[in-house]
Design a protein around this nucleic acid. Structure first.
Lengths: 127, 127
DNA sequence: TCATTGATCAACCATGTGATTGATTAAACG
DNA sequence: CGTTTAATCAATCACATGGTTGATCAATGA
């Protein structure tokens, strides 16, 4: 149905997908190799159907893919989307760090008690 | 109310907080320095109350803090929690990469067509 | 063919989320 | 004091999410 989901939507779904401890546990498990729905459901006190839904959420978020092996549908981690998430976070984390360094430099240069200047080094937004 | 929120809960809230484009835009803005609710609300076509709620979500997730300046309540980015998120993601992203490297090494060592071994290098879980 | 196994589909329910409008608190200003 | 400004509180609403049970589909194997 969806032709070209915007980068925004992909981030929405991916972050949302990780906002659930069951789905994070599934990601943790899959980081060690593919697994079937039954194998993934085994550690949890919820039904297989619920786990199946969680996997669909992860798949829709682009975090996992499913192949086919007879009746089994093994789930594989797709690390590319995880990388996109760290990329987003780090982008703003690093800008924030730079602001602090810039402010430090300013205070070191002009050590008067009136230095209430706003730190505003312009950078393109991209959301 | 909450005394010691588990690391799990903190991750839940933080990932959930980033699963909304408005809140990500707020984070992006705050990476360049503190801002008031009115300033943060200005670019959006939603009410100030809605933005105030978004900020509460971010605050509850430990991603921002609020100080006081007369009637204003400036919002500041708190990058520590962002770091916790990248730490979680990278943990499993890197384990996954290692699996691939281990598998590659195996295939290189024994290039027979029957190499269907499961890759299972044990590592402690932590969710 | 028929039963078994693996997984999804469908309907339903409780709860949570994002948004709204209207009222309220709190500090500064005249 | 009363007014303006900044922001939150409260009630409400539509809709999404996470879970359940029961039925169904699809491939294997006796």
């Amino acid at each position: 149905m969806i032709i070209d989901p915007s980068a925004d939507d992909r981030l929405d779904h991916a972050f949302m997908a990780l906002a659930d401890p069951v789905r994070r546990a599934i990601i943790a498990r899959l980081s060690r190799g593919p697994a079937t729905v039954n194998e993934l459901a085994e550690p949890f006190a919820i039904t297989k159907q619920a786990v199946s839904k969680h996997i669909q959420v992860l798949e829709h978020a682009g975090l996992v893919t499913r192949t086919r092996d007879a009746q089994r549908r093994p789930v594989h981690l797709d690390a590319a989307q995880l990388e996109a998430l760290t990329a987003w976070i780090d982008r703003y984390r690093l800008i924030h760090e730079q602001q602090f360094r810039a402010l430090d430099a300013l205070l070191a240069q002009a050590p008067g008690p009136e230095a209430g200047a706003s730190v505003a080094t312009e950078t393109g937004d991209h959301l």
